[in-house]
């Protein structure tokens, strides 16, 4: 009966999906006058706990922690969530390397509740005990640390770690039995490569830089994408037209923020079929990604309201909802 082991968890997730924000709630948030009103609405919708201060960052952090707590209660083998949690882990590695290299201590740049606790990560990097890190991190961590120490180039350090994160996500996706995790990993790496190509084209980066930043995947050819980026934005759009990511070409023609929005929407599109799959881990992974997407969207709205951006410009950046 192993194949039915997620029946309980999926049904619980179905009941929890009811409280995910629909487009109507997002419209209500957009219609709020200012950040304070947005926060009141979020609290009315049950965001944050009784003891959470009425502060945007505190509420968003609380919601993230709630999601992982719920999921940990439902799934025994959390390794299936590696593809989703790797970005946080690598973010902490990046932060630890920068703290260790610059000597400037700052605790609020770390993400809490990761596989390797932030304090331990910092200790490993400070002591240069990179072998204590998992295989998929060790080499990149050492290379990035040495690069930052010798060149003081923060961007170089970032691309080394970001590429290692993409490779780790891709490898975890390849190993996964569930189609949703494989698809998610493929989409994540491909979309990240496209983002790198677009940004590199805009900032006139070299072929070498792009190749160092991008990770190979099945649906995108890194060589072809790099060459397209060197030939201009039209060439990138032309290349994307011939791939599964032609929506990205259309978004690029529209605007930069429409493209950034497409990048996230493309991931949600990947997981949407899992809404109708009642027996696998799929809906649970889809729920976690949907919550991450929801929190990101709320953060965009709150930041927009904080800085008094016009509604249209916030709306353009708002991501597609899962429900």
């Amino acid at each position: 009966m192993a194949k039915n082991q997620y029946t309980y968890a999926v049904a619980r997730i179905r009941a929890m999906e009811v409280s995910l924000f629909s487009q109507a709630v997002i419209d209500q948030l957009l219609a709020c006058k200012d950040e304070k009103q947005c926060i009141s609405l979020l609290q009315e919708k049950g965001w944050g706990n009784a003891d959470t201060p009425a502060d945007a960052e505190a509420i968003l952090t609380c919601e993230r922690e709630k999601t992982w707590k719920e999921v940990k209660g439902l799934v025994d083998d959390m390794s299936v969530f590696d593809v989703v949690s790797y970005p946080d882990l690598f973010h902490n590695l990046k932060a630890a390397i920068k703290v260790a290299a610059t000597g400037e201590e700052s605790s609020d740049i770390f993400i809490s509740d990761t596989k390797i606790p932030a304090e331990e990560m910092l200790e490993i990097v400070k002591n240069k005990e990179f072998s204590r890190l998992p295989d998929y991190m060790a080499n990149a961590a050492e290379e990035a640390y040495e690069a930052l120490l010798h060149t003081h180039d923060g961007q170089l350090c970032d691309i080394i770690i970001d590429r290692a994160a993409l490779l780790a996500i891709y490898a975890a996706g390849r190993k996964a039995k569930d189609a949703i995790i494989r698809d998610y990993a493929e989409s994540t790496v491909a979309v990240a490569d496209i983002k790198i190509a677009v940004r590199s084209q805009k900032t006139a980066k070299s072929l070498e830089f792009m190749k160092r930043a991008m990770a190979e995947c099945d649906s995108i050819s890194v060589d072809a994408l790099c060459k397209a980026a060197l030939n201009g934005m039209d060439a990138i759009q032309e290349y994307l037209e011939g791939t599964a990511y032609k929506g990205g070409a259309e978004a690029l023609r529209e605007s930069t923020s429409a493209f950034e929005c497409w990048c996230d929407n493309r991931i949600i599109e990947t997981i949407k079929p899992q809404l109708y799959n009642p027996f696998t881990i799929g809906p649970i992974v889809a729920y976690v990604l949907a919550r991450e997407n929801e929190i990101k969207t709320v953060r965009i709205i709150l930041t927009g309201k904080q800085n008094a951006f016009p509604d249209d410009s916030i709306r353009e950046r708002v991501r597609e909802m899962y429900v």
Partner: peptide, 21 residues
């Protein structure tokens, strides 16, 4: 017994979140 068991797991999942159902 198997069928009721499978449906029971799903039912428990829903009732955990929303006992009114």
């Amino acid at each position: 017994a198997i069928g009721v068991g499978i449906a029971g797991q799903a039912a428990s999942g829903v009732v955990t979140e929303d006992p009114s159902k």
